[in-house]
Design a protein around this nucleic acid. Structure first.
Lengths: 182, 182
DNA sequence: ATTTGCATGTAATCTGTTACATGATTCA
DNA sequence: TGAATCATGTAACAGATTACATGCAAAT
């Protein structure tokens, strides 16, 4: 499906960048819905260049460090826009080891089950905290049709998802505590 | 990480099964948090057998159709329980093409952005409907420490997740509609 | 009879991670 | 001067999907 291709094209549509800078974006901004390591990005950029979707020019930093500054071509822009307009079937529910363990948690003692849920809850609470921290950079809701609008929307989605995850784990814990004196 | 291994062991812990029956379970019960095709299940069963985690006996259905009925060994049970007790770091947020498109949706017209969100909303509403249908088999909340409890909990989690997803898309749509006469 | 579902397997391919490998620059 | 970060790449491996391949059983 070449999704990485379109993620990279989308980022280069916004701004000319090096592979290293793309990697940083996958680690930060895009992290809530896509990721890629440099070992995947560099070969993909090479391929994209061969396909004529991107170009690059070499820049020298300091005295000799070579950087490849990539930019999207007209062909790349067209392919990106066409991908963006294509209908997208929602993907199968993503795999989730934690939910798999919770599904099988009947093989644990009640105490162990609680531990499992509480451990998960702590981790999701920490992630939620982190997301809310990021959210602070939006003092107000960005105007639609700005680059920040999409940014804002996916971050909001991530916060809502984590909040729900926490509520779910709390529900599970309270069901396990039912009928017991704490 | 061999997660498929433990998913299969967990299912065989519950009941002796053939590869085909395991496949059916991945398509139905486990579908909300794990999946596997038969082309992955059969080789994994072979490997698990070589590792001594499962055994099988051949059963004949009809006159000549051979079925391999697998069962978990003591070694398999131990490895499964040890996996279940191991602490689990929550995994990186799963990749999501739809969110990626929404992130980049500023390159579309407002009308197209609405279409994108509405299309996603329709699909998630359908999935939610389907999940609520499944939920009907639970006339009441199962007792903790029954096999149905885990089943109930993960289904509840799936329903909550889809409800949140729908709420999020609705929020996005209403932001796009802001300040317009419909 | 024919289609659908049961039942099992392998091969080719794609996607992604971890590990290997190198070297320059910047900051403390 | 040493550590962290910038910068780019390849190789090996793991995990998963799609396609190839076969044959029996049950229902219409």
């Amino acid at each position: 499906m070449r999704t990485l291709k379109y993620a990279i094209l989308g980022l280069l549509y916004q701004e000319d960048q090096t592979g290293y800078e793309l990697m940083k974006q996958f680690e930060s901004t895009l992290n809530e819905f896509w990721s890629a390591k440099h070992s995947q990005i560099y070969p993909e950029l090479k391929k994209l260049n061969e396909e004529g979707c991107v170009e690059f020019q070499i820049e020298i930093a300091g005295t000799s460090l070579e950087k490849k500054l990539y930019s999207i071509t007209e062909k790349g822009k067209e392919e990106f826009r066409s991908w963006l307009r294509d209908e997208t079937k929602i993907s199968a529910t993503p795999k989730d080891i934690s939910r798999l363990k919770i599904f099988f948690s009947g093989y644990l003692s009640i105490a162990e089950q609680k531990e499992l849920l509480m451990d998960q809850l702590r981790q999701h609470e920490a992630r939620l905290q982190h997301l809310k921290e990021n959210q602070k950079k939006f003092s107000h809701i960005p105007e639609k049709n700005t680059a920040e609008f999409g940014d804002y929307l996916v971050l909001l989605g991530a916060v809502m998802r984590e909040e729900t995850q926490c509520r779910w784990l709390e529900t599970g814990l309270s069901l396990l505590n039912d009928g017991e004196i704490s």
